[in-house]
Computed example of a mutant assay.
Amino acid sequence: MPHDPQALAELAGKTMYERDPASQALGMTLDVIGPGHARMRMRVREEMLNGHGTCHGGYIFMLADSAFAFACNSHNANTVGAGCTIDYLSPGRRGDMLVAEASEQALSGKTGVYDVVVSDQDGRTIALFRGKSHRVAGHVAQVDEGDAHAAA
């Protein structure tokens, strides 16, 4: 594995994003990744609106869940969600650029806790998400010891 945790997080993020058609299809981008941290964004499109003319909560949840997934896999250990909650605080509107900032709060053994704040382009908090993770077998990206510097 690369000795540089940042290089490893970037490799894991790149590898995961390339294999993530769901996030790609919604136009999500992975803007920042580091050990235990990820920031993703998504523009609210017309087809994401609900009957009230605001962003459907499922899309907000998907953005938060994707940021959570990238943050908890940033250590390059295959990690899945074990549970989560979300609180919707403000509506997202058509054209808004939603940003999900995921941060590791605790990591012990095979379990972790991550908080995700979803906000709009003006910094207004749209939702708060908390996810619990569980590590499973394997790695996101395969890296040889000798590739430590090449992975950066």
Score class of each variant (00 low, 15 high):
V136F: 10
R93E: 13
M1R: 12
A9M: 00
C84F: 15
R135A: 13
Y59P: 00
R39C: 10
V99Y: 11
S133Y: 05
R94L: 15
I60K: 00
L8A: 08
P35E: 11
V113F: 03
I33K: 04
R45G: 11
V136I: 14
L49I: 07
D4W: 05
A150G: 10
K110A: 15
H134C: 11
D96M: 09
T54E: 05
F70K: 01
D87K: 14
G51N: 04
G83F: 05
A67H: 01
C72W: 06
Y114I: 08
A141M: 10
D120I: 01
M28W: 06
G58P: 05
G13I: 04
T111S: 14
G81N: 07
A102V: 04
H134G: 06
A141K: 05
L30P: 01
H134Q: 14
V143L: 09
R43M: 05
R124W: 09
P21D: 06
C72A: 09
H139W: 13
G27W: 05
P91F: 10
F129R: 02
T125C: 09
C72M: 10
I126W: 00
D4T: 03
G146Y: 13
D20R: 06
P21S: 08
S66T: 14
A137M: 11
E46F: 12
G53D: 02
D147G: 03
Y17R: 14
M97G: 09
G36H: 04
C84L: 09
V140A: 05
N50H: 07
L98N: 00
D31Y: 07
H37K: 13
L26G: 03
A25S: 15
N50V: 10
Y17W: 15
D115E: 15
D4V: 04
A7R: 01
A38H: 02
M97A: 15
F129D: 02
R41V: 04
D122F: 09
R19I: 03
G53K: 07
G109H: 07
E145T: 12
A67Y: 01
A127C: 03
A69T: 02
E101D: 15
R41C: 11
G95Q: 08
R43G: 00
S23H: 05
C72S: 05
A100C: 12
E18P: 01
T125E: 15
E18F: 13
C55S: 06
V99A: 06
L30A: 07
N78D: 08
P2E: 05
H134T: 11
T15A: 12
L63C: 04
F129Y: 14
G51Q: 08
F68W: 12
D144A: 15
R93F: 13
F129V: 08
G57F: 06
M1T: 11
A148R: 10
M40F: 08
